[in-house]
């Protein structure tokens, strides 16, 4: 995964920075080359989906529920002041579907799943388990990287939808407690301002975030340097870089979806 040693073109730091970007692109290119090439590791993909998706449910449930309640509580006073308390379900739904669900799910997943992938592959690298696969004529990239990136790309959108549902449920409980709105009336009111573009953008964002989290975690773990310090660094950098890229992607996708909305 690294270029051949050569003299510095600029400074060592700048050279290493661009070399890192070049190697990351090579890593992504290798993923697209391997993902459509048989044999397919379906069993391992399903196992990873279980590890990444199912095992994240308690955390997503808690965060989604609390986010829904807190956001509703915080928004109510302003809307009540303008006599627009009935807009609360719609406002919450737009906020959850367009921004909160994709972004919060992605940030939680970057912390939980990204660090886990970085640490797991990093420790496999330093304990020579990846080398052991290579010498057994097994393609470790296909077995470890392709399966994990596929699983995160598939599972983050599912977790995002689940987060949105639980968040709206939390919001409903708060609205029901204060305004005595029924379940059906709340959800009718919540879904009426939601457009296809909102749902599509939320899903698209989640797919992008899932791919980013899986790819960054795998890249950092797979290329971890020797020793336990390298494992910690890989886990840490997986989270930091994933979050940074998620925010960049958020800005770009929101801007594009706004252009589409205006057009």
């Amino acid at each position: 995964m690294s270029l051949k040693k050569r003299e510095h073109i600029t400074t060592k730091g700048l050279d290493d920075y661009f070399l890192g970007i070049y190697n990351a692109f090579k890593f992504v290119r290798l993923f697209f080359r391997e993902v459509f090439k048989p044999p397919f590791e379906f069993k391992e993909i399903i196992r990873q989906c279980y590890e990444i998706g199912y095992k994240s449910l308690p955390l997503i449930t808690l965060t989604g529920f609390v986010t829904g309640i807190v956001f509703t509580k915080q928004s109510r006073p302003s809307l009540v002041e303008f006599g627009a308390a009935s807009w609360l379900p719609g406002l919450i739904a737009i906020a959850v579907v367009r921004a909160l669900a994709p972004l919060v799910t992605a940030l939680i997943s970057a912390g939980k799943i990204g660090s886990n992938i970085g640490a797991e592959l990093g420790s496999m690298r330093v304990s020579e388990q990846i080398d052991a696969m290579e010498v057994s004529a097994i393609n470790p990239f296909k077995f470890l990287v392709v399966t994990r990136v596929t699983a995160t790309t598939l599972m983050i959108p599912v977790l995002m939808m689940y987060f949105a549902f639980v968040g709206l449920l939390g919001s409903f409980l708060n609205v029901n407690q204060n305004e005595h709105t029924s379940f059906i009336a709340f959800f009718q009111s919540a879904f009426s301002p939601i457009s296809f573009l909102d749902v599509f953008t939320g899903l698209f964002k989640s797919i992008m975030y899932g791919f980013t989290i899986g790819m960054v975690g795998c890249y950092k773990g797979y290329n971890a340097s020797r020793g336990t310090e390298g494992v910690g660094k890989a886990a840490n950098m997986s989270v930091v870089i994933s979050m940074f890229l998620i925010f960049i992607e958020e800005i770009v996708i929101v801007q594009i979806s706004n252009w589409i909305r205006i057009a």
Binding site: S123, M124, S127, E128, Q129, A132, E134, A137
Partner: peptide
């Protein structure tokens, strides 16, 4: 190389068993 590796066994210093 993959074909050749099937004919080579490598016993690692720390065993490198899949945890």
């Amino acid at each position: 190389l993959l074909k050749l590796r099937l004919k080579i066994g490598f016993s690692f210093q720390n065993s490198a068993l899949y945890d």
